[in-house]
Amino acid sequence: MNPGAIIQFLNVTKNYVKGKVTALNGVNLAIDKGEFIVLVGPSGAGKSTLIRLLVREELPSTGKIMVAGRDITRIKERDLPYYRRNVGIVFQDFKLLPNKTVYENVSYALELSDEPDAVIKDKVPRILRLVGLKERANNYPAELSGGERQRTSIARALVHNPKLLIADEPTGNLDEKNTAEVIDLLLRINEAGTIVLLATHDLDIVRSLKKRVICLNNGQLQLVSKGEDKK
C-alpha cells in the first residue's frame, strides 16, 4: 500500500474463459502523482488486460482498482464517460477517424462531451500547437506521416486534460525518427504533470528513458528498474 499513490491495483486478478485463462494474477501496483512508468513484457503477458482494466473496459475477476481515491470497478455505466475523460489513451494503430481532418478528430472528442463551441475554438489550436501539428490542422489522417498521426491521437487524448495518459505501444508502427518525436512529446506531457503509462517492448526506449520499469510475465508483475529519478 502506498498512501500517496494516485492509481493503485490491489491484488487484482483477471480470468478469462470461465477461469481457465488467467491474464493477471494477484497484481499489486501503485503509481504516484506525476510519474512516468514503463510497462514491458512479452505479448500475451497481460499488458493489454491491465490497460483495459484501467480504462474500465473490463472488470477484474477479483481485487480493487483505485484511481484518485475511488474504486473504479464500482463506477456506474452512465458515469463511465466522465471517468474516461480523465484517462487519455493512445494506441499503436492511432484509431483516428479517416473522414475527419486533424482539427476535427481532436475537436470531435470535445464535442462529444458537451463542451461549448467557444471552449473548443480556444482549446483545439492550443493542443495542436503543443503536439506541433498546427500547420496540419486541415489535413486528413491519410495525408500525414505515422508520427504525425500518432501526435494527432495524442492531441485527442489530451483534450480533456487527463490526469493519466496511457500509451499502448504508441511507437510500434513508427520509424526511429518518429519514435523519438513521440517519446519526446510524452515526456513533455509528463513534465506538465500528467501521469504517463507507456506500454512498449522497444528495449531501446526503455533504456533511454531511465524511468521506473515494470514487467508483466505470466500475469505477474515484477519491478525491473526503479528509474534514475527515484533512487
Binding site: P81, R84, R85, L97, A109, L112, S113, D114, A157, H160
Partner: peptide
Amino acid sequence: RDEIEIMRLVGASQSY
C-alpha cells in the same frame, strides 16, 4: 464499430 469504439474511448456520453 471502430468509430463507435473511438467515441467511447474519448468519453462520449451514451446519447452521443
